[in-house]
Amino acid sequence: MRESSVWALAWRRFRRDRLGFFSLIVVLLYLVVVLATATGLVARDWQQEAGVSFAPPTFLGPGADTPQLAKRAEGAQALSDYGIPDPLGPDLAEIAKGLSGASANETRAPTLALGGDKWGRDVLKKAVKGTETSLFVGLAAAALATFLGTLFGAQAGFRGGKVDDFFNWLYSVLTSIPYLLLVLAVAAVVNQKGVLTVILILGLTGWTGIFRLIRAEYLKHRVREYVLAADAIGASGARRMFVHILPNVSHVVLVQLSICVVLFIKSEVILTFLGFGVGVDTVSWGSMLAEAGSELLLGKWWQLTAATVAMAILVTAFSLFTDAMRDALDPRLK
């Protein structure tokens, strides 16, 4: 029988898990959508007010309460008659004609595929664009947290002594404050909105879980024979840490990375909802949900549904994929 690498074996185990494999495909589809929006192929014009205010989804048909722009224009003309010739009359008429012409050119659709928001923006496009923001924040923050957690964990576990004490102290300080409280406290201090801010806040506070696991792995591995052998042939500390040990603990890193993505996507939604997240010129699932709260009271449920479904599918798929990946990479766990 042909010999296979650890990764090939894991891949074979992973492929047998049909639910996990299907989840991977869903996650990949989401990534394709993100690539498409990031390059501007899709949903570039999400801010365009394409439909009437609160345009209902197409499958419901146009709503009865569609505001009539034309009526308002007629009413305005009836007012201007006091028997005195209006000196600005002709000019105003000109402007009014220009305006109505412009809005006639820019016909607003009575219905949109998945409905419209208060300004008549397409909810489908917002959801797609929001996917880009939320997923990007989740991935970038998770990458940052995983990088820090792995780096610190490797140093603490491998070097031991004072370095270990220091990082353990840092760990116990950060974990003694509940995660969301810590995030909110940092958000209050930074007091600045934006994608980068959210990534930094989540990434800089969220590395503790990874740190603990990676440190434990390094404690275990640093006394293994292959590491002692590397030491004997004169490999430096950094080389043993990152060239020799890291590939052997990379499955832990990978699983933690993907757990973090899910956690951070959810955190971003809450932060943005509370107004400490991405700015107002960016759309994310959190900002859609923030708008959806008051819309629901008016009976406009489509934006809430679109954001919820988009998020639920991704997060479910990502979680199931993480579970399948963990089972595949570590067959002892079962």
Partner: peptide, 16 residues
């Protein structure tokens, strides 16, 4: 699986 799906819906949606 149902738990995973339920967990993936934001707490905000539950409240709203």
């Amino acid at each position: 699986v149902a738990c995973t799906v339920a967990q993936s819906v934001s707490i905000l949606v539950y409240i709203l």
